[in-house]
């Protein structure tokens, strides 16, 4: 029982560390002054991973009906997709 709890807490700590590493990657890309289609799509991909980690593991949606996870993923797919379209329009 205690081992299960310890493993669960370790798992959440690993998620936190992954989120921190992805945040530092995002910041580093910004500090490097990088721009363009590839960088924009990379940043959106990193943001998608981070948002889904928070939704599924911190919010606890991984234990709920598929519908709720689909809403959270769909939200990012629509918002992130429209942001990508707007940025691609700007590159032309």
């Amino acid at each position: 029982m205690n081992n299960t709890k310890a493993l669960s807490n370790l798992f959440f700590t690993v998620i936190l560390l992954v989120l921190a590493v992805l945040t530092i990657m995002t910041f580093s890309l910004g500090e490097a002054g990088m721009a363009g289609k590839g960088v924009m799509l990379t940043l959106l991909a990193i943001t998608m991973i981070k948002s889904q980690l928070v939704a599924n593991y911190f919010m606890g949606l991984r234990r709920t009906k598929f519908l709720w996870r689909a809403i959270m993923f769909g939200y990012f797919a629509i918002v992130g997709g429209l942001i990508a379209v707007a940025y691609l329009m700007g590159l032309k």
């Binding site: 995002t26 890309l29 948002s51 939704a55």
Partner: peptide, 20 residues
Amino acid sequence: SFWHMVDFLWIILFPLVYII
């Protein structure tokens, strides 16, 4: 859950406004 939403939204807001 509300607190995680605050985090979730900032995760999108930060790269959108500060980085991309």
